[in-house]
């Protein structure tokens, strides 16, 4: 007996876990640093979903106070994630700046090639 109700109700969690795992896979499996940073971005975005989706109330509305409504979705995760997105792009830029410097120094952005070059010296 499969509980369809529970599966439908938890679908957002399953997708969140999938995005997280896909990000993790990219970070581990791909040697290219830019692709790894994008994988980290995927991982980070799945955390946004993990925070925001439990705060939603079906039949509620966005947390902007209005006498016509009584149910609001939880504002606290929104605040945390809003700042996390902007911080995320700033740190992504920092990572990419490092990649640019590495590429200028080594002529490649592939981890395996860089390790091989370091061992040759």
């Amino acid at each position: 007996m499969i509980e369809w109700q529970a599966i439908v109700g938890h679908y957002n969690y399953y997708v969140t876990v999938f995005l997280m795992v896909a990000g993790l896979y990219i970070v581990i499996a791909h040697g290219n640093m830019i692709k790894s940073l994008i994988g980290l971005g995927l991982f980070q975005t799945s955390v946004y979903l993990l925070y925001i989706s439990p705060g939603k109330i079906v039949g509620g509305t966005a947390p902007i106070i209005d006498p016509k409504y009584t149910d609001y979705s939880n504002p606290l995760p929104h605040v945390l994630i809003l700042t996390a997105i902007v911080v995320g792009v700033a740190t992504l830029a920092l990572g990419l700046a490092l990649v640019v410097r590495i590429s200028e120094e080594y002529g490649t952005v592939d981890e395996d090639e860089i390790v091989a070059m370091d061992q040759d010296q």
């Binding site: 938890h10 969690y13 399953y14 896909a22 993790l24 896979y25 109330i57 039949g59």
Partner: peptide
Amino acid sequence: VATVTGAALIWGTFQLPGFG
């Protein structure tokens, strides 16, 4: 690694409240 992590995380969602 990804599959094991994913399975552990899915196992962790079983106790969570449903959507909305």
